[in-house]
Design a protein around this nucleic acid. Sequence first.
RNA 1: GUCCCCAUCGUCUAGCCUGGUCCAGGACACCGGACUUUCACUUCGGCAACAGGGGUUCAAAUCCCCUUGGGGACGCCA
Length: 461
Amino acid sequence: MITRFAPSPTGHLHIGGARTALFNYLLARNQGGQFILRIEDTDVQRSKDEYTGAILDALTWLGLTWDGQPVFQKARAGLHREYVQKLLDTGKAYWCHCPPEEIEAKRQEALARGGKPRYGGRCRELGLGPAPGAAVRFKCPHSQSVGWKDLIKGRIVIDSQELDDLVLLRADGFPTYNLAVVIDDLTMNITHIIRGDDHVSNTPRQILLYQALGVQVPQFGHVPMILGKDKSRLSKRHGATSVMAYKEMGYLPEALNNYLARLGWSHGDQEIFSLKEMVELFSLKQVGKAASVFNPDKLNWLNAHYIKETPLETLGQLIWPYLAARDLICPNPDYLIKVAATVRERGKTLAELADKAEFYFLSLPKIDSTEAQKLLTPDNLANLKELGLELAQNPGLTHEAFDSLIQNMAQKKNVRIGAIAQPLRLALTGRTASPGLFEIMEILGPDNIQKRLNAALEWTS
RNA sequence: GUCCCCAUCGUCUAGCCUGGUCCAGGACACCGGACUUUCACUUCGGCAACAGGGGUUCAAAUCCCCUUGGGGACGCCA
């Protein structure tokens, strides 16, 4: 078995492409086959090298390793032309001299009439030769039905009457997508073509091409589309679509892979899968036929899950770039591990975690003024001052001792524990929601605590 | 418009092929409770679906047909 992922470098790897790549990868690895990467760069205008690099980076980040070197389609144009010539020689293709504008006009006209916009086949039987501006078209066989047993959707049949004579070779001498894909899949011995649903209508054309060449037709499987919340095709207006954007937002590749796999594929009631496990369990039989809606909430849940599973040392290193981007300084590597331990269950993404951890690295926290007005009242400040004194006298306080200190104080002042704890939290972190007070104090250390306490005592809006 | 595909809780889905074990199971989200000095985590519980209509059958979420709804494609883009 040989599968392939064949993106065109006209943009970043998006969520849909990533899932297609994942399914190809899983299928190949599950069957002990090969997974090949082919860059479809025949659109010279829109293809960019930077996108090729970005796509490779994204696949690498996801851990979807491909076999061998990526194949560049443009470099194979000579091969494609050979096959076009072969089709020309056997009368399966012909030169077309029709001006593109004229064809386009007819197409629009047909569409406006409510008909099917197709090329009429003016040059089909004219026996024309090459000429400037001429293209080669496939002589699509008439009145025959083309069908295949789709690996995901089951039997699909289309009347060849629905198809027109597609262009194989453009006037600029470059092959078109449909020709190039067929020749490449054929010559690269691709056995299973797993691609997006939007290619279903290309499949009968391509099958006809395989047949015209007299070669075996590979297996096709079309994975359903990913939709946005409004059930329209997933696009930028639904939020981030590029894989690397998810990386930047602080999603883990494990989470994205897991989410994408579960979007369409299932294995009973199981929700959590490592990539290795997916490889073992994957089967196209368990891929659904219907399009599915991208649900960020569930991705978040998975991401939180994998964040919790990540070893603290690793997690610290993953969070650090987000902190470093804010020009913060890390006192020592151990500090980061301790910090990570206190925030890891409090956020869904690395970016969120970093945000919650920022106060640890600030020389003084940015105190929320709304909360300060509520909490830093004269009474509370008096308590805070007293608490500061106590803490200064007992720098090596145990967790238990700290708890009873606060409790006793609350009792003595006849206030709720929160009346003591919340102003302290605000002084230490600048916020009213944070990791546990004692955990924070352990990490901050006595000097830092006093400094923050003093700053809070002098706080003015 | 034409052709193709699809249809189970708000969302992802199990079940459908091989009808009865399903007054439909799990997960996310949501809503309550417990835990708790905050936020969160965890935990317990709850809400919530077989698109509609016809068949077939003793019996249909499961098989067939129609309707409706949704998606995709119709490029000298990929």
